[in-house]
């Protein structure tokens, strides 16, 4: 997948992957083994499901909200950041990469992906 190749070529990206919304398959590129990438897919998928539901609720309570539909989410740790747009995840070493640039690229490349499969 082109976006995974793009992402892994960006500074600071440790691993980039794609998970299916059904949770039955995943692909990845980068510094993880198969088992870790599978676990990362499970975690990212679970959070995505949860965030989609929450933004739908926010949208229901707040008319004309700019939150819904959800496009993705970011979790920042002391050294690493995980970001997800649509069904693509990316693990970033903060000291080596720019979250803004990575997110901008992901949002541009994945702007046509819909949430229908979620």
């Amino acid at each position: 997948m082109k976006i995974l190749t793009d992402l892994i070529g960006m500074p600071g990206v440790i691993c980039a992957g794609e998970y299916s919304y059904r949770g039955d398959r995943f692909t990845y590129k980068g510094q993880m083994d198969d088992e870790q990438a599978k676990q990362a897919s499970i975690m990212c998928r679970a959070t995505t499901m949860s965030v989609y539901m929450q933004t739908d609720m926010l949208g229901a309570f707040c008319k004309d909200s700019g939150w819904a539909p959800n496009r993705g989410w970011v979790v920042k740790g002391p050294q690493f950041t995980v970001c997800v747009i649509a069904n693509i995840f990316c693990f970033i070493n903060e000291a080596q990469g720019s979250l803004n640039r990575i997110l901008e690229h992901m949002q541009q490349e994945l702007s046509d992906v819909t949430n229908e499969l979620v």
Partner: peptide
């Protein structure tokens, strides 16, 4: 599980919506 440190404690959470 992985022995990779640097994720905990979580220092921030962001949600990216359609416009906000």
């Amino acid at each position: 599980m992985t022995g990779n440190k640097g994720f905990y404690p979580v220092e921030g959470f962001s949600m990216i919506g359609l416009d906000w």
